[in-house]
Amino acid sequence: MKKIDVLYVGIMLVGAFWAFIVTSNSEPISRVTPCKLVDIIAQSDKYISTDELARRLMSDDPTLTLIDLRNKQEFNSYSLNGAINIPLQDLLNKQYVDIINQDVQTVIFYSNSSDLAVKAWMLTQRMGYSNNYILKGGLNRWVETILRPEEPSATATLADYEKYSFRKAASAYFGGGSVTGESVSKKPALHIKRRKKAAAGGGCD
């Protein structure tokens, strides 16, 4: 072989070794490294309270996307208005990427408690997605605090009473209070627009 041939083969081998080495630690660079993930978990403000959610829902905040992580059956029996049902195991499906990976909407995960939402939130952080939050306490706390708020004791502070009066108002708004939460009419979830991709053409030599 000529010298130049040896050089070309050498360059190809270097490239191939490079490709081989980057697959052996096969984490794509776009994902968050474990070290960074620990930082994110420790620092960020990942919870949203039921009061905050109620306030935003009552002011018809259009930037809110609610994601119900429970299964379809539970979702159909009761859920929050306008929520999208994405069972946790389907969360990373390609069809939902546009919902959870964007920086316009505030995405709020919830299930009956916080458990599934925490898992979902961890997954999205791992993928490097932002603007995802957990509804603290999930639907159980939603019912406890918003739909059926408890009257504070006589010795409670003024702030507690203010919170109570807000919750009572919210309860009336969401059809809770002494009433059960069943009468909530379901608003259809927003239609999700996806980027339309042009079909790639085929070719040969």
Binding site: V9, M12, L13, G15, A16, F17, A19, F20, I21, V22, T23, S24, S26
Partner: peptide
């Protein structure tokens, strides 16, 4: 993996 395959092909080449 893709990287392993590329390496094998390059060595074959």
């Amino acid at each position: 993996s893709d990287g392993t395959f590329i390496l094998i092909m390059t060595i074959i080449a």
